[in-house]
């Protein structure tokens, strides 16, 4: 029996949450498009791709941690710390090379993530609390050692500015010039790589197994420490990658930004169907979750609503989705005499 390697991708059954999100997205797009046809433009699409790239990469890191049964709030801090360290190093050494920037940032991110894993595993502490502590500590350490000076476009490494301006495809129209960002292939590569790791390697399956039931995993002889080390280091590396993309996109290096948005990104991943109880979560769901956030962020103007409506919309959608999901569970539990909560 010969099967296409992609069969699994196309034949997979979508989760309820994915279908639900897809319906929201399509419904919303239809409403926006009816109200304002200008919405359907390459410009809007390219814009969203550019501004959503960094967040998407972070979200994948969040996903893999949630699947492993943990929750990480340090990833924005890691992104800023690794990105800023990399920029500072480039300025100090006079190396103005985008590959060098990525390399340093990813290595730093990876190390910081590994420290998270080490503390979590060694002292058997709740992941939220540990990453809360390390987020503060990492960011504070960076600020103390490297300072918090911002670098505007002129003062930051030129290679980052250039990279952020690089477009794959350029479309010139009467309203201006729109480019498809170079971040896109990076995001796609991250998505494919993560999918491959999670679904096609034993390591990835072990991440699911550990998240599903850590005790059983260890009885089976799965190395819990190695699995967690991978999860947090990978998430850290993605944060490092995002740090450089973030500074390149803004063309401004500000080491005190970004930190504080972590809960919003976690919310996007959760709405995509990842459970805080571990073992569950899909890449498609995560993409859809981010799309919902990005849609509200960049298209409410088309509905004649200012950007101040973003949070209200997203908060409402999030609560309703969670409400539907957990209320069903509640009814099910009542029926099966499961006395879980309240």
């Amino acid at each position: 029996m010969k099967t296409s390697p992609f069969r699994a991708v196309f034949n997979r059954r979508s989760t309820a949450m994915e279908k639900y999100l897809l319906a929201i997205i399509i419904g919303y797009i239809v409403i926006v498009a009816l109200k304002n046809p200008l919405f359907f433009s390459v410009e809007t699409l390219f814009d969203m791709l550019r501004s959503g790239s960094g967040v998407m990469i972070l979200a994948i890191g969040v996903l893999i941690v949630l699947v492993s049964g943990g929750i990480d709030v340090s990833f924005t801090a890691i992104a800023v710390v690794s990105g800023y360290t990399s920029v500072k190093l480039m300025l100090a050494l006079g190396i103005d090379n985008i590959l060098f920037a990525f390399m340093v940032s990813i290595v730093v991110g990876c190390l910081l993530g590994a420290i998270n894993a080490l503390i979590i595993y060694r002292f058997n502490l709740p992941t939220l609390i540990v990453t809360l502590g390390t987020a503060s500590a990492y960011h504070g350490l960076m600020a103390t050692v490297l300072g918090t000076k911002s670098f505007p476009t002129g003062a930051m490494p030129q290679s980052l500015v250039n990279f952020g301006s690089t477009d794959l495809i350029v479309i010139n129209s009467d309203t201006g010039r729109y480019g498809l960002t170079v971040f896109l292939p990076i995001v796609i590569a991250v998505l494919v790589l993560t999918w491959f790791i999670l679904y096609r390697t034993m390591l990835g399956r072990q991440v699911f197994a550990v998240g599903s039931n850590e005790e059983s995993a260890s009885r089976l002889g799965i190395n819990i420490f190695r699995t967690k080390l991978f999860v947090y280091a990978y998430s850290g590396a993605l944060s490092g990658l995002m740090g450089i993309i973030y500074f390149s996109e803004l063309k401004y290096v500000n080491p005190v930004s970004l930190v504080g948005t972590e809960l919003m990104i976690i919310a996007a991943v959760v709405i995509g169907g990842a459970k805080l109880t571990g073992g569950e979560g899909t890449i498609l769901g995560t993409i859809l979750g981010i799309v919902v956030v990005q849609l509200f962020q960049s298209t409410l103007v088309f509905l004649g609503l200012g950007s101040s409506w973003n949070d209200l919309f997203f908060g409402a959608v999030l609560l309703i989705s969670l409400g539907v999901m957990y209320y069903r569970q509640r009814i099910q539990d009542r029926k099966n005499l499961v006395f879980a909560t309240a």
């Binding site: 399956r205 699911f208 197994a209 998240g211 599903s212 039931n213 005790e215 059983s216 995993a217 009885r219 089976l220 073992g279 569950e280």
Partner: peptide
Amino acid sequence: QDLSLFDHL
């Protein structure tokens, strides 16, 4: 006794 299976797999 708890079977140690992975429910999500």
